[in-house]
Design a protein around this nucleic acid. Structure first.
Lengths: 204, 204
DNA sequence: GTCTATATTAAGATAGAC
DNA sequence: GTCTATCTTAATATAGAC
């Protein structure tokens, strides 16, 4: 009979697909690998998701909807600008340490298919910078922070938080530390990043 | 006769391979595409480079040896720390605007094959942070800049310079600007990044 | 050195039995 | 719903003529 094992298998497949796609990217991932990871037959993947492309899209959506709230936090929270920066950096790094492949996955797939961005931006939950911009402009006006374009500040915050994970291999080589020491540096960054930014923009 | 057309064709192929590999990455690139780009037959690629893997490695080496001097500048130049940061940010951004796919290419391929890093680090020209670290520690000691780990400062400099190009699609979506406006933001960053960093670390 | 034609392999996808 | 076996296509790689 058509039991509810349905959803269980579907779920198992999606989880396996996340694992493989996020680590290897759409192009390098193999359906066979995903099947192995799921402990299931290759044909099942097609039974539940029809094609590699559709399975990939399910994974991407899920990944993006995991990252989006993180970014929304800095954009739309009802807290002071300094608090936002502190919270975001700390939370984001904790988050990425649990999902180490996720930011790179999203960025790579957006680069591979730029039209993808337009589709997603059009959707309901896509983070928008406008509230953050208003807040920054206001604080500049009030003389709380030095003059800086909100766009540039936002790009700086994103860069300082996201890049160390995406460029970890390169940075490990340049800074010449092993995996463990690098992880330690990332731990420190939970507060280091916010200090760095706030020291730059705050007027005494 | 075996003429010197040899080296000319070899060069043409390498250039075409750079174009395709850097844009698409090793896995997604197609030998046929590279042949087309070179205006030459597919068999020639194998005649000169034996395999896709070897052709790729030639491209990677060439790309890395183009980027390495850029990074070496901030690490080993004989200038003040502030000057280094200003020069690097300005030069690096000009450089990347001419080679837009290069940083992403290198980072992706290093992530895909982490053992690659070890091999390259062992090589002669791989940039090393130790001189930069010494300089930073000294300036902290002298009270010229506030206390900060050289490793963290270095990671911050790299992040602020490199990420905006790697994450351009995502950032364009979040900041909600078109290609042209984004390019304008990158232009501004030639000075903006250094201001941001120096404001953060310099003690008055 | 350069080309066309072909071999080889690997991956996505489907058919059909259970 | 799940499996094995198979089809189909596409990509790397090679053989062989010129």
């Amino acid at each position: 009979m058509e039991t509810k094992e349905n959803s269980s298998t579907e779920f198992t497949i999606l989880n396996a697909a996340k694992e493989i796609f996020e680590r290897k990217g759409m192009v390098a991932a193999r359906m066979q690998e995903i099947a192995d990871e799921a402990g299931i037959n290759k044909a099942m993947l097609h039974y539940y998701y029809r094609s590699k492309q559709l399975l990939f899209e399910a994974v991407f959506k899920s990944a993006f909807s995991l990252l989006a709230p993180q970014i929304n936090e800095i954009i739309n929270a009802d807290t002071s600008i300094f608090e936002k920066i502190r919270n975001f950096s700390s939370n984001y790094i904790s988050f990425v340490m649990k999902h180490p492949y996720l930011p790179n996955f999203i960025i790579q797939e957006l680069n591979r298919n730029p039209d993808f961005v337009k589709k997603i931006v059009a959707e309901k939950n896509f983070p928008n910078i406008s509230k953050f911009k208003q807040q920054v402009d206001e604080k500049v006006e009030e003389g709380v922070i030095r003059p800086i374009k909100a766009e540039q500040l936002f790009i700086n915050i994103m860069s300082l938080n996201i890049f160390p994970f995406i460029g970890s291999q390169l940075l490990k080589g340049l800074v010449n530390v092993n995996e463990e020491a690098y992880k330690q540096l990332m731990e420190e960054r939970k507060t280091e990043i916010a200090d760095f930014i706030i020291n730059s923009i705050k007027l005494k």
